[in-house]
Design a protein around this nucleic acid. Structure first.
Lengths: 212, 212
DNA sequence: ACCACGATGTATCGGACCGATACATCGCAC
DNA sequence: GTGCGATGTATCGGTCCGATACATCGTGGT
């Protein structure tokens, strides 16, 4: 999961660890706490060893903005490699049970603008399936096994059930949107201006922003 | 977390691993997937080594119901010890940051009927605080940093924000209920009949056994 | 002039937990 | 009688977390 997230973020811009973690938190804050440094740094090392990412020279490029303040230090800036982009494309396209869990789904969803529509649909439907099953489990519990549970546990289940129902509705909307061509609002091109050799096919219905 | 959950469940009834996991799933299904055997069995061993739980002889007690079918096998039934009960009381009463995370809160909440009111209140308020902070983070993101994020990520944040708002409202209700004396419905005494030497002060609204 | 403090930044260690997997037995349906 | 799904115990490798350590920077207070 972390591997996928790092590769995805570095595709938008080169960054050092600290920055990466902040972006991670910003992008995934809704779905999971954040990855800790205890997994981030080892993973960076692993990705570098595998050749998916590489260390970059400090502050040479993208001049003008923020001249050279705090120039080089211990900071290690990572850049994704061509192999890394391939790896990302492969990871983002393959789906499985772990794609539908809370954490996995969140990460995949956060990179939907780099995912082709067929895969998006597959993921949304898989997630819906997963949540529907969780929902049914809770319904059964609140029906049949209710008298075995104390009031607090029951209340927890009730609240969980409501959350499930709500998420299923949300997913339904997203799926309908996806099928009708247009994205929830609009996928937009990442920071990286150039480079169009990445596979992700431009989504069909590129339309307007939300905020009316 | 798992330690607390096991101790709590064994206080209601002696069980073997498989059964324990099913109960765990039933009780915590709303908040987290389930603990896997890969953590369950090692933890059982650890608890046994610490003297909090002990192996019990198979099917000797609680006769009548289900005579002796499938009598003894490889099944290992665990029973909580007096020290284990003390340990549970200590764990359930102490609060901290980890108590307010998704998983920690869920487990603590699931055993609220064995928690004194002051602690319940402390946990609910801590949890509320935590979610409120998460909520503020998401609000900031959707306000200031919105243009940096793509439409899908934005939609994820929006959905997360709504979930936070909903949970805060839920917590408010629980807190109000808690303050006004009555629990969501009513905490009930566990299976364990004897032993009143454990510290947990009898909650105010102590009523009768489960099965009415 | 000094320095305390919080943000930035890299890094490691132990431990909790997961997912896959391997077995072995039971009761039941075909 | 036989295969199959539920019951049941157990381990292994790997991911991730939480705490911790340490060093530098800019800022503001005194």
């Amino acid at each position: 999961m972390l591997e996928l997230a790092i590769l995805g973020l570095l595709q938008e811009a080169s960054m050092h660890g600290y920055e990466l973690r902040k972006e991670l938190t910003a992008k995934l804050g809704a779905i999971r706490a954040a990855f800790s440094y205890g997994s981030l740094y080892p993973t960076l090392r692993r990705l570098q060893a595998a050749g998916w990412i590489a260390e970059a020279a400090e502050t040479p490029a993208t001049a003008e903005e923020v001249p050279a303040l705090t120039s080089r230090r211990g900071r290690v800036v990572y850049t994704i490699t061509a192999e890394g982009k391939e790896r990302f494309a492969q990871l983002i396209a393959q789906t499985g049970p772990e794609t539908y869990g809370d954490s996995g789904f969140g990460v995949h969803f956060a990179f939907f603008s780099r995912t082709d529509q067929a895969t998006r649909l597959r993921i949304l439907e898989g997630r819906r399936r997963t949540i529907e099953e969780r929902r049914e489990g809770l319904r059964d519990m609140l029906g049949r096994a209710a008298e075995r549970l104390d009031a607090y546990t029951l209340e927890l289940q009730r609240h969980g059930l409501e959350a499930c129902e709500r998420e299923v509705r949300w997913l339904e909307e997203l799926i309908a949107n996806e099928r009708s061509g247009r994205a929830p609002t609009v996928p937009q091109e990442g920071t990286a201006g150039g480079r169009r050799e990445d596979n992700s096919p431009p989504p069909p219905g590129e339309s307007r922003k939300e905020r009316p």
